[in-house]
Structure formats: C-alpha cells, structure tokens
C-alpha cells in the first residue's frame, strides 16, 4: 500500500464554539467557514487565544462544535468519533507514551486497529525510514532529543496513512535552528504523502514558508484566507496587515496621507527616504542586519520603520529625515472596521 491516495477536502460551515455558560461564556470560534482543498497544506495562523487550536480540535473530533457543520470528504462528521474520521494529529507536546519504546509508540495506532504483528512492524519500519528514526527504535521517548521526539510523533501519525494530517504547533518546542530544518522536511513530507495537511501556528514565518494557503484568525473570527503571497500583498484587514510581515506594516493614524475615514498602511520596504516626502521624522535607531538595514524613526504619525538596502546612503541617529510611501504599494483600511478598502 502506498502512502497518500485519499481524497479529503475538509469543509467547515459557519462553525462556532463557545466555552462555559452564562456570564462566563467565551466564544472561542465565531462562525468560521473554510474550505480546505484536497492535498492542500493549510495553515491556521493567529495569535494565541485566537481560536485556531480549537478549530483544529473540532476537525479532529476532540471538541464538539456549538453550532455549524464539519465535513471531511463528503461526509458530515459532527457526530463521528475521532477514530473514524481518517485523520491523525501531531500535538505540540508530541503526546508520546513515555513508557513505550519508539517502536511501540509508532506501532500503537495500528495495534489498536487490530493490524497484525508482521504488518505492524513493517509499517513502523517504513515510517521510521522516512523520518530517519531507524537507529532509535528501541529507545524510550525520555532518551531522545526534542527533534527526535517530534519525528516520532510524526511517524506515529504517518503509519496511520490518514487522509488528513492535523498538526498543532508541532515545531514550537524546538530551537530556532532545528525549526528551520524541520520546516523544509515537513514541506517535503507533504509533497511525498500528497495528503491534506492542516497546520496550526502562531509563527508567520512557518505560515509563509510552508502553507499552500493561510487562514488568518483573530479573536475567533476568520480574517482572511489566501496564498501566503496574497495575504502579504493584499491583507484583507489592518489586523492581518500588522500580524504578517517583520517588522510589521506601518499603520498611520486616520487622516495621515489619506482621508479621515481611512488608515493608510505602508510596509517597511515601501517606506522610502524621499527628500520632500510627506512624513517628517527623526531617526531613533538604525539596525544593520547585513542584507538590509532597518531604520526606525519617530514622527508626528508615530513610530515608523523603513527597510533600506545596505548600500543606501544612510542618515545618522538624530537626523531629521523625510519619508514617503511607494505610491504603488499603499494599503487603505476603513478607520473604524479595519477592513481593506483598496
């Protein structure tokens, strides 16, 4: 049996989840509708507490939606037990069984399903090969590094050969270097398995580098869905604009460079040193990052950040400078709702 070969789009229709009762009630997910295509690598992105994990857990069947419908494939799964949903999940903490060896951990999902011993061993071996775990099969999770544990968690998911992989911040317990390497491996894994991935993260770098599409959530609401480039180039709201991109987009107060009911946003790379520019500012900090320079300045419109080429002629600290936006790349948001107007 080859990996992959399932058809599994996931469809959420105005899914809402409330916790608690009465005055203590909190709406974690608020009427989210989302189509996740077959074989897609969908990222659920947002700050902590935005409802992204709850949404993932509703797909898994670990939480019941308060209202709305969840479909996997063509099937309505609101009342379907997790084990029958053809999904596998990788947890942030990995959730490995500490008293079982790596091999037993990987085999466990198959054992529960009554798969025979020989087949189990073969499948576990294959998953271990894919993830480079062959040498660690007899160890217990406590004897492994964080990265190795993370791979065991992945292996345990892939032996199931599920239609949908669910991942809840799987990289957040790894150090920065390892995180970078693992990102690439996950993308590679997605390509090899050709199944649907739903991946929760608060890290926009992961979102930008791995996702086929990104769904940005804020306070339980879906702000925008699109390819990483789309979301970056055409943020649907002031929230998305500021959440994605490092350093974040400069968001000017209403009235500055526009009308009173509009907020103008300019990405740092589109804020240019322009003699006679409309924004008067004083340089407060200059950060040399090698491939670029970040210029921080204080203006009547608040703090501004501009991204400059290292070769540019740079002002000195405390200098007065004039800045202006690249007219092609200005973003306009409604001053009250934050929604993009052009």
């Amino acid at each position: 049996m080859a990996y992959g070969a399932h058809v599994a789009q996931v469809r959420l229709e105005s899914v809402t989840k409330r916790f608690g009762e009465g005055d203590d009630q909190v709406t974690a997910v608020d009427a989210v509708s989302l189509d996740i295509h077959d074989h897609e690598f969908m990222i659920l992105l947002g700050p902590s507490g935005c409802g992204k994990s709850t949404l993932l857990r509703m797909v898994a069947g670990l939480e019941d939606p308060t209202s709305g419908d969840v479909y996997i494939g063509e099937e309505w799964v609101n009342n379907t037990q997790p084990k029958l949903r053809d999904i596998a999940m990788v947890f942030q903490s990995y959730a490995l069984y500490p008293h079982k060896t790596v091999r037993a951990n990987i085999e466990f999902p198959l054992k529960v399903r009554g798969v025979g011993k020989a087949e189990r061993a073969a499948e576990a071996q294959r998953a271990a090969d894919v993830l480079g775990l062959t040498d660690y099969m007899r160890r217990k999770p406590g004897q492994l590094s964080g990265g190795q544990r993370q791979r065991v968690a992945l292996a345990r998911a892939i032996v199931r050969n599920p239609a949908v992989f669910l991942m809840d911040e799987p990289l957040s317990n790894l150090d920065a270097k390892l995180r970078g390497d693992t990102r690439a491996e996950l993308v590679d894994l997605h390509r090899r398995f050709d199944s649907t991935f739903i991946y929760v993260t608060h890290d926009q770098v992961e979102a930008m580098t791995m996702g086929s599409r990104v769904a940005v959530l804020n306070a339980g609401r879906l702000e925008q869905v699109g390819t990483p480039q789309d979301v970056y180039d055409f943020p649907a709201s002031a929230f998305v604009a500021q959440f994605i991109g490092t350093p974040p987009m400069n968001l000017l107060p209403p009235g500055v460079l526009g009308t009173d009911d509009v907020q103008v946003g300019i990405r740092p790379e589109h804020l240019l040193l322009t003699p006679g520019g409309r924004l008067q500012a004083t340089v407060t900090q200059i950060e040399h990052l090698g491939h670029e320079v970040l210029l921080h300045a204080e203006s009547a419109a608040g703090r501004l950040v501009a991204r400059l080429a290292p070769s540019a002629a740079l002002p000195a600290m405390g200098d007065s400078v004039q800045l202006d936006a690249d007219a092609q790349h200005m973003h306009h948001f409604d001053a009250t709702t934050g929604v993009r107007v052009s």
Partner: peptide
C-alpha cells in the same frame, strides 16, 4: 498526566479501559 496523551489515544480509537490498562496505569 498530560491531557494530550488521552487525546492522542482517543484519536487512535483507544477506549477507556484500554487506555487505563495500557497507558495510565503503567505510568
């Protein structure tokens, strides 16, 4: 015990008795 252990097992279809016998008790 981490809550995720039970959840991970539930996703695999592990029933309560089996989880008790195979995971919770040994731990």
């Amino acid at each position: 015990l981490p809550k995720e252990l039970r959840e991970a097992a539930a996703l695999d279809g592990v029933g309560h008795m089996r989880f008790l016998y195979e995971v919770a008790a040994p731990l």
